[in-house]
Amino acid sequence: MNIFRFAGDMTHLASVLVLLLKIHTIKSCAGISLKTQELYALVFATRYLDLFTDYISLYNTLMKLIFLGSSFSIVWYIRYHKIVRRSYDKDQDTFRHYFLVLPCLLLALLINEKFTFREVMWTFSLYLEAVAILPQLVLLQRTRNIDNLTGQYVFLLGAYRALYILNWIYRYFTEPHYVHWITWISGLVQTLLYADFFYYYFQSWKNNVKLELPA
Protein backbone atom coordinates (compact mmCIF):
# COMPACT_ATOMS: atom_id res chain seq x y z
CA MET A 1 0.00 0.00 0.00
CA ASN A 2 1.31 3.47 -0.83
CA ILE A 3 0.05 6.95 -0.14
CA PHE A 4 -1.21 7.43 -3.71
CA ARG A 5 -3.32 4.30 -3.60
CA PHE A 6 -4.61 5.05 -0.10
CA ALA A 7 -5.51 8.59 -1.15
CA GLY A 8 -7.17 7.15 -4.24
CA ASP A 9 -9.24 4.69 -2.20
CA MET A 10 -10.26 7.42 0.25
CA THR A 11 -11.24 9.72 -2.64
CA HIS A 12 -13.25 6.90 -4.18
CA LEU A 13 -14.89 6.25 -0.82
CA ALA A 14 -15.66 9.95 -0.47
CA SER A 15 -17.34 10.00 -3.89
CA VAL A 16 -19.77 7.18 -3.00
CA LEU A 17 -20.42 8.71 0.43
CA VAL A 18 -21.16 12.13 -1.12
CA LEU A 19 -23.65 10.45 -3.43
CA LEU A 20 -25.25 8.37 -0.66
CA LEU A 21 -25.41 11.48 1.54
CA LYS A 22 -27.13 13.46 -1.21
CA ILE A 23 -29.66 10.74 -1.96
CA HIS A 24 -30.29 9.77 1.67
CA THR A 25 -30.58 13.26 3.18
CA ILE A 26 -32.35 15.34 0.52
CA LYS A 27 -34.08 12.25 -0.91
CA SER A 28 -33.23 13.39 -4.42
CA CYS A 29 -31.21 11.91 -7.27
CA ALA A 30 -31.64 14.90 -9.59
CA GLY A 31 -28.79 15.04 -12.06
CA ILE A 32 -27.62 11.52 -11.21
CA SER A 33 -27.49 8.94 -13.98
CA LEU A 34 -29.01 5.62 -12.89
CA LYS A 35 -27.22 4.00 -15.83
CA THR A 36 -23.82 4.99 -14.50
CA GLN A 37 -24.77 3.70 -11.07
CA GLU A 38 -25.88 0.38 -12.54
CA LEU A 39 -22.65 0.10 -14.50
CA TYR A 40 -20.67 0.75 -11.32
CA ALA A 41 -22.61 -1.91 -9.44
CA LEU A 42 -21.73 -4.32 -12.26
CA VAL A 43 -18.08 -3.20 -12.14
CA PHE A 44 -17.82 -4.02 -8.44
CA ALA A 45 -19.80 -7.26 -8.78
CA THR A 46 -17.45 -8.56 -11.48
CA ARG A 47 -14.27 -7.23 -9.90
CA TYR A 48 -14.79 -8.50 -6.37
CA LEU A 49 -15.62 -12.12 -7.20
CA ASP A 50 -12.60 -13.05 -5.08
CA LEU A 51 -14.18 -11.43 -2.05
CA PHE A 52 -14.68 -14.75 -0.27
CA THR A 53 -11.87 -16.75 -1.84
CA ASP A 54 -8.77 -14.55 -1.55
CA TYR A 55 -8.21 -12.79 1.74
CA ILE A 56 -5.70 -9.98 1.18
CA SER A 57 -6.28 -7.75 4.22
CA LEU A 58 -9.04 -6.52 6.47
CA TYR A 59 -8.81 -3.17 4.73
CA ASN A 60 -9.21 -4.76 1.30
CA THR A 61 -12.20 -6.86 2.33
CA LEU A 62 -13.85 -3.99 4.21
CA MET A 63 -13.51 -1.58 1.29
CA LYS A 64 -14.87 -4.15 -1.14
CA LEU A 65 -17.94 -4.63 1.05
CA ILE A 66 -18.42 -0.87 1.31
CA PHE A 67 -18.16 -0.34 -2.45
CA LEU A 68 -20.47 -3.26 -3.21
CA GLY A 69 -22.97 -2.22 -0.55
CA SER A 70 -23.00 1.48 -1.49
CA SER A 71 -23.23 0.97 -5.25
CA PHE A 72 -26.12 -1.51 -4.98
CA SER A 73 -27.95 0.59 -2.42
CA ILE A 74 -27.63 3.68 -4.64
CA VAL A 75 -29.18 1.71 -7.51
CA TRP A 76 -31.91 0.48 -5.16
CA TYR A 77 -32.64 4.04 -3.93
CA ILE A 78 -32.97 5.45 -7.45
CA ARG A 79 -35.00 2.51 -8.74
CA TYR A 80 -37.32 1.66 -5.86
CA HIS A 81 -37.32 4.29 -3.11
CA LYS A 82 -40.77 5.89 -3.34
CA ILE A 83 -39.50 9.46 -2.90
CA VAL A 84 -36.06 9.32 -4.53
CA ARG A 85 -37.31 7.63 -7.68
CA ARG A 86 -39.59 10.59 -8.41
CA SER A 87 -36.58 12.85 -8.92
CA TYR A 88 -34.96 10.47 -11.39
CA ASP A 89 -34.99 12.05 -14.84
CA LYS A 90 -35.39 8.96 -17.01
CA ASP A 91 -36.22 11.00 -20.13
CA GLN A 92 -32.78 12.61 -20.00
CA ASP A 93 -30.83 9.59 -18.79
CA THR A 94 -31.12 7.77 -22.10
CA PHE A 95 -27.56 6.59 -22.77
CA ARG A 96 -27.81 3.00 -24.05
CA HIS A 97 -25.39 1.62 -21.49
CA TYR A 98 -25.93 -1.92 -22.72
CA PHE A 99 -23.90 -0.83 -25.75
CA LEU A 100 -21.01 -0.35 -23.35
CA VAL A 101 -21.32 -3.70 -21.60
CA LEU A 102 -21.06 -5.97 -24.63
CA PRO A 103 -17.94 -4.42 -26.25
CA CYS A 104 -16.20 -4.43 -22.86
CA LEU A 105 -17.05 -8.12 -22.43
CA LEU A 106 -15.83 -8.98 -25.93
CA LEU A 107 -12.65 -6.97 -25.42
CA ALA A 108 -12.07 -8.71 -22.09
CA LEU A 109 -12.39 -12.07 -23.81
CA LEU A 110 -9.82 -10.99 -26.39
CA ILE A 111 -7.35 -8.98 -24.33
CA ASN A 112 -6.66 -10.23 -20.83
CA GLU A 113 -3.77 -11.37 -18.68
CA LYS A 114 -5.01 -14.92 -18.35
CA PHE A 115 -7.97 -16.66 -19.95
CA THR A 116 -9.79 -17.79 -16.81
CA PHE A 117 -13.30 -16.87 -15.75
CA ARG A 118 -12.13 -14.78 -12.80
CA GLU A 119 -9.44 -12.99 -14.79
CA VAL A 120 -11.75 -12.24 -17.73
CA MET A 121 -14.39 -10.92 -15.32
CA TRP A 122 -11.77 -8.78 -13.61
CA THR A 123 -10.56 -7.41 -16.96
CA PHE A 124 -14.17 -6.78 -18.02
CA SER A 125 -14.69 -4.76 -14.83
CA LEU A 126 -11.65 -2.63 -15.68
CA TYR A 127 -12.82 -1.85 -19.20
CA LEU A 128 -16.36 -1.21 -17.99
CA GLU A 129 -15.22 1.12 -15.24
CA ALA A 130 -13.30 3.17 -17.80
CA VAL A 131 -16.53 3.99 -19.68
CA ALA A 132 -19.07 3.77 -16.84
CA ILE A 133 -19.05 7.55 -16.33
CA LEU A 134 -20.24 8.26 -19.90
CA PRO A 135 -24.00 8.18 -19.16
CA GLN A 136 -23.39 10.55 -16.23
CA LEU A 137 -21.30 12.97 -18.31
CA VAL A 138 -23.90 12.93 -21.10
CA LEU A 139 -26.64 13.64 -18.53
CA LEU A 140 -24.63 16.54 -17.09
CA GLN A 141 -24.20 18.00 -20.58
CA ARG A 142 -27.95 17.77 -21.11
CA THR A 143 -29.19 19.04 -17.78
CA ARG A 144 -26.56 21.82 -17.86
CA ASN A 145 -27.13 22.99 -14.29
CA ILE A 146 -25.01 20.85 -12.01
CA ASP A 147 -25.71 21.01 -8.29
CA ASN A 148 -22.69 21.07 -6.00
CA LEU A 149 -22.99 17.54 -4.68
CA THR A 150 -23.24 16.04 -8.17
CA GLY A 151 -20.26 18.10 -9.30
CA GLN A 152 -18.26 16.97 -6.28
CA TYR A 153 -19.29 13.38 -6.87
CA VAL A 154 -18.03 13.35 -10.46
CA PHE A 155 -14.88 15.25 -9.53
CA LEU A 156 -13.97 12.80 -6.72
CA LEU A 157 -14.75 9.85 -8.96
CA GLY A 158 -12.32 11.14 -11.58
CA ALA A 159 -9.70 12.17 -9.04
CA TYR A 160 -9.53 8.69 -7.49
CA ARG A 161 -8.43 7.11 -10.77
CA ALA A 162 -5.90 9.90 -11.38
CA LEU A 163 -4.39 9.09 -7.96
CA TYR A 164 -4.33 5.41 -8.94
CA ILE A 165 -2.19 6.35 -11.96
CA LEU A 166 0.35 7.86 -9.55
CA ASN A 167 0.11 4.63 -7.54
CA TRP A 168 0.88 2.54 -10.65
CA ILE A 169 3.87 4.73 -11.49
CA TYR A 170 5.12 4.40 -7.91
CA ARG A 171 4.67 0.61 -7.90
CA TYR A 172 6.31 0.28 -11.31
CA PHE A 173 9.46 1.91 -9.93
CA THR A 174 9.44 0.24 -6.54
CA GLU A 175 8.23 -3.29 -7.26
CA PRO A 176 10.07 -5.57 -9.71
CA HIS A 177 7.77 -7.35 -12.20
CA TYR A 178 4.92 -5.00 -11.42
CA VAL A 179 3.68 -4.49 -14.99
CA HIS A 180 -0.04 -4.39 -15.80
CA TRP A 181 -0.57 -2.69 -19.14
CA ILE A 182 -4.28 -3.52 -19.25
CA THR A 183 -4.88 -1.82 -15.91
CA TRP A 184 -2.74 1.16 -16.81
CA ILE A 185 -4.24 1.82 -20.21
CA SER A 186 -7.87 1.44 -19.10
CA GLY A 187 -7.15 3.63 -16.05
CA LEU A 188 -5.61 6.27 -18.31
CA VAL A 189 -8.55 6.20 -20.73
CA GLN A 190 -10.91 6.54 -17.77
CA THR A 191 -9.08 9.58 -16.41
CA LEU A 192 -8.91 11.21 -19.84
CA LEU A 193 -12.68 10.89 -20.19
CA TYR A 194 -13.00 13.15 -17.14
CA ALA A 195 -10.48 15.65 -18.51
CA ASP A 196 -12.97 18.08 -20.03
CA PHE A 197 -15.18 17.85 -16.95
CA PHE A 198 -12.14 18.66 -14.77
CA TYR A 199 -11.39 21.65 -16.99
CA TYR A 200 -14.85 23.17 -16.58
CA TYR A 201 -14.95 22.17 -12.89
CA PHE A 202 -11.76 24.10 -12.17
CA GLN A 203 -12.87 27.02 -14.32
CA SER A 204 -16.09 27.34 -12.31
CA TRP A 205 -14.21 26.89 -9.04
CA LYS A 206 -11.54 29.48 -10.01
CA ASN A 207 -14.04 32.07 -11.24
CA ASN A 208 -16.35 31.15 -8.40
CA VAL A 209 -19.26 30.69 -10.75
CA LYS A 210 -21.81 27.90 -10.99
CA LEU A 211 -20.49 24.87 -12.86
CA GLU A 212 -21.87 24.86 -16.40
CA LEU A 213 -20.86 22.46 -19.14
CA PRO A 214 -21.02 23.71 -22.74
CA ALA A 215 -23.85 22.17 -24.73
Binding site: N60, K64, E113, T183
Partner: peptide, 10 residues
Amino acid sequence: TVDDYIHDEL
Protein backbone atom coordinates in the same frame (compact mmCIF):
# COMPACT_ATOMS: atom_id res chain seq x y z
CA THR B 1 4.54 -16.87 -10.20
CA VAL B 2 2.71 -14.44 -12.37
CA ASP B 3 0.10 -17.12 -13.18
CA ASP B 4 -1.89 -17.00 -10.01
CA TYR B 5 -1.44 -13.26 -9.61
CA ILE B 6 -3.95 -12.02 -7.06
CA HIS B 7 -5.15 -8.50 -7.73
CA ASP B 8 -4.46 -6.66 -4.51
CA GLU B 9 -5.93 -3.35 -5.64
CA LEU B 10 -9.56 -2.33 -5.27
